[in-house]
Each structure stands twice: as structure tokens, then as C-alpha cells.
């Protein structure tokens, strides 16, 4: 049955509006990243979607090469912040996923009552602001300030409830009989978990890990408070891209933003097949 023409028109109009709202800012960032100083400082009719004089100057600039148009020298390049973000977000995701998965499995299979899972979840209810200053004190006492591993640790802790809750829902949905079948065949509990349960959970694990990674990757507040110089992350570094002479370095920020978008997008594409399955995991044959 085909729907009426006017309905189809409305449908596409709605899709177009939604796309515009999400894509225009991103496309604008892409465009800005390739514009020379004169163009991203332009106003009014001088503004164009396509750079008139496309350049890689912005990228060269944040990686420390001098640029003909930007005379302001950078205190430090984007290399270390990118490394810092990659290291802390990845290790933080590993911590959250391994601890969260283990906790979720244990509580899903052996746990009783609803309070313990909820208690873990309530970690998430604290506004990060409320706990960050005490955390700062603790971290400085432990010598974890301004280090990628200190940052990774707090990322792991903060996103743990998220990983835990996602995985718990997935484990609860997985038919227990599959594990019992393996046990009847003489498989130990640990082997059941590593050889049967986890491989069957690949899709949910991948999607949960991606969500956790994105959370860690886009953090600003925690990194702002726990890093000072050496290991600032991309968002913190991005905020510092300005100078008294030129004001906000929008072109450089756009270039950095473009780089920052790469890892999540790549990861997303890599696990795309799993992502759809992971989100529809409940559809397992019961």
C-alpha cells in the first residue's frame, strides 16, 4: 500500500529539517577547518560554505609548524593532547568494561534482590561537579594528578555504572539454558563464561564499549580539573586555543574538532554490524 504524496512530502521535509539541525554545524566545522585566517574571521556576505582558498594551515598550526597567516606561536602542539585522550579514554573504557561486565555477570547469575544493582547505578546520580573537588584532593595525594593513568582510572570509575547496567540487561536477556547446556557437557563455570557467554555477547559488548568510549572521549570537566600541563586532553586543549592577539582560533579549533571526531566514527563503522544486533539483543530466540 503506498502512502499519499502529501504524506511522503511531509516525511521528507521532516527528515530534511532533522538532518539540517544535526549536519549543518558539523559541515560548517569541516569547512572552517580548511579556511585560512582571513576567511574564518570574515562576516556577512564574505561567509562561504566552500573555502575560497582552501588550506591545511590550521592543521599545520596545531601540529606546531609555523604558518604564514598565523603569527601567534603555540605553547604546545596537539600531539600530546591527542595521545592523552587516546590513552586515557581507551584504558578508562577497558577498566569500566571489564569491571562492569564481571559485576553484571555475577549479579545477573548469582545476585539476589534489586538493591545492589541500583546501588551501583546511583554512582551515576552524583553530579560530577559535586565529587570532583574531593577526587582532586585524593588524586593529588595519590600522585595521580596530571597523568594519563590517573585520568583513565577516574574515567573507568565514572563510566563503570553505565557499562555495568548495559551489560546486566544483556546478561539478563541471555537464556540461561545455553550456559547450563555447556555445563552438562562438562564445562567449568569459568570456561562457560569465557568460551560460551562472552563470545555470544560480542555484539552487546561492542556496543556498550563504544558508548563508554564516547563518554570518556568527550569528557571536559574531569580532565580540566585533573590535568594541568602535561596530559591535558583534546577538549581541554581545544579550549586553550585562543590568544590575546587573535581571540578565539576558530580555524584551529575546527581542525582539532575534525581530528577528534575520527576515533568514535571509525569505531562506530568498525562495529556497525554488531551495533544494530547489540541494540536489538532481546530478540534472541527464547
Amino acid at each position: 500500500m503506498s502512502r499519499s504524496l502529501s504524506f511522503e512530502c511531509l516525511r521528507y521535509a521532516a527528515i530534511l529539517v532533522a538532518l539540517a539541525i544535526t549536519l549543518v554545524p558539523i559541515l560548517w566545522m569541516v569547512s572552517m577547518a580548511f579556511k585560512p585566517v582571513a576567511e574564518w574571521q570574515a562576516t556577512g556576505s564574505d561567509l562561504t560554505w566552500i573555502p575560497k582558498d582552501p588550506t591545511l594551515d590550521n592543521f599545520r598550526y596545531i601540529f606546531g609548524e609555523s604558518s604564514s597567516n598565523l603569527i601567534v606561536a603555540l605553547e604546545r602542539t596537539a600531539v600530546k593532547p591527542i595521545l592523552s585522550s587516546l590513552l586515557s579514554a581507551t584504558l578508562g573504557t577497558l577498566i569500566a568494561m571489564s569491571a562492569g561486565t564481571a559485576a553484571a555477570y555475577g549479579l545477573s547469575r548469582y545476585g539476589t534482590g534489586a538493591n545492589l544493582p541500583l546501588a551501583l547505578l546511583q554512582l551515576r546520580l552524583f553530579p560530577p561537579m559535586a565529587v570532583m573537588i574531593p577526587v582532586m584532593v585524593m588524586w593529588s595525594w595519590l600522585g595521580l594528578m596530571d597523568s594519563w593513568y590517573g585520568l583513565a582510572l577516574i574515567y573507568g570509575i565514572v563510566t563503570l555504572p553505565f557499562a555495568f547496567w548495559l551489560m546486566k540487561v544483556f546478561f539478563d536477556d541471555m537464556p540461561r539454558e545455553i550456559e547450563e547446556a555447556a555445563q552438562v557437557e562438562g564445562c567449568s563455570r569459568w570456561r562457560v563464561f569465557t568460551r560460551v557467554t562472552l563470545p555470544m555477547m560480542r555484539a552487546p559488548l561492542a556496543s556498550a564499549a563504544l558508548f563508554v568510549f564516547i563518554l570518556n572521549w568527550s569528557d571536559y570537566l574531569i580532565a580540566l580539573l585533573l590535568t594541568t600541563r602535561e596530559w591535558v586532553t583534546i577538549p581541554v586543549y581545544m579550549a586553550s586555543l585562543s590568544s590575546s592577539m587573535t581571540g578565539q582560533l576558530y580555524g584551529a579549533k575546527a581542525a582539532l574538532g575534525l581530528i577528534a571526531a575520527v576515533p568514535p566514527v571509525l569505531l562506530g563503522i568498525m562495529i556497525q554490524r554488531h551495533l544494530v544486533r547489540g541494540l536489538t539483543f532481546g530478540a534472541l530466540r527464547q
Partner: peptide
């Protein structure tokens, strides 16, 4: 040392 067949098969789908 028993064999068990489940109602929902419990096949290792991976």
C-alpha cells in the same frame, strides 16, 4: 555424565 536437551535448544549461536 548425562545428556540434556532443552526446550529452547540452547544452541551456541556463535
Amino acid at each position: 555424565g548425562v545428556g540434556f536437551v532443552f526446550q529452547n535448544f540452547a544452541i551456541f549461536t556463535h
